[in-house]
């Protein structure tokens, strides 16, 4: 074992399919470099399982650089592991110590059913987006950007909200499995810009209605989502969503 490398015990949620009952299985990994990402450590574990003729662990991942939002893992009681404001692929093994036991679970929410092992079905988010997370513009040449003056603070707030990558960590970490940080980011991003005004009212009503229908819980303002969100989406967005929704209901 080269200097600083670690031996770890992993307890990982294994579940054959949505209907099966799952359980935590214990695995050992040895000689893990502190420079590996958490997902690379999982690759090592899966190689090990394949070599033994066992079923590898299903887990979601894609970009491995913190932009796609796929790498949903609930690690030792925290969405994306022990650090705030990062994704699992941005978590390095140097955040752990030799001999540690690490428990890895899937996102837990009625609205995010487990597909297999650590992968969950997040299409509830897509259905919310399809209810209003877009603008209707005609195709053709983009007009000159200076035709649409936008105050800098609004542009900044919209940009910050648009940073949401739809990872679902907010839902996973919320004690109520509430999706309000996600939905509020999507509503805010468009409500703040001139292009978003046409569907502003119906967007707020329809996206909130779909969120409720999907079975996400109700926000109780504990603030856990904001702490765990890899993109630093702020609770101000939830307040803005509330305003948008109240105004939309007053208007029609």
């Amino acid at each position: 074992m080269s200097h600083g490398n670690m031996n770890l015990t992993l307890k990982v949620w294994r579940q054959k399919n949505t209907k099966a009952t799952g359980k935590l299985e214990t695995y050992k990994v040895t000689d893990i470099s502190p420079d590996m990402s958490f997902l690379e450590m999982f690759d090592v574990l899966n190689e090990q399982l394949i070599n033994k003729g066992e079923e590898p662990i299903a887990f979601d991942h894609d970009c491995r650089e913190g932009i796609c939002g796929m790498c949903s893992m609930y690690i030792n009681g925290r969405a994306h592991g022990p650090k705030s404001a990062i994704t699992t692929c941005q978590l390095h093994m140097r955040s752990f110590k030799d001999g540690d036991t690490i428990v890895v679970e899937p996102w837990r929410a009625a609205a995010f059913p487990v597909i297999k092992d650590l992968t969950v079905d997040r299409s509830a988010f897509d259905r919310i987006i399809s209810k209003g997370g877009f603008i209707s513009v005609n195709t053709g040449n983009a007009q000159d950007a200076n035709c649409l003056p936008i105050p800098k603070p609004d542009a900044d707030a919209a940009f910050e909200a648009a940073a949401c990558i739809g990872c679902g960590a907010c839902v996973a970490t919320c004690k109520n499995s509430s999706a309000m940080l996600f939905v509020s980011a999507k509503i805010s991003q468009l409500a703040l810009l001139p292009q978003g005004q046409v569907e502003r009212t119906s967007r707020a009503k329809n996206m909130v209605a779909q969120m409720d229908e999907e079975g996400f819980g109700n926000c109780t303002n504990t603030g856990a989502c904001e702490v765990e969100c890899p993109k630093g989406i702020s609770l101000e967005n939830i307040a803005r969503m509330n305003r948008e929704f109240f105004m939309a209901n007053i208007k029609e």
Binding site: V103, E105, A110, A111, N176, S177, S178, G217, N218
Partner: peptide, 11 residues
Amino acid sequence: NNKARPVKYAV
């Protein structure tokens, strides 16, 4: 809110 998370976390 309880119904929104039928399976709880181990940790």
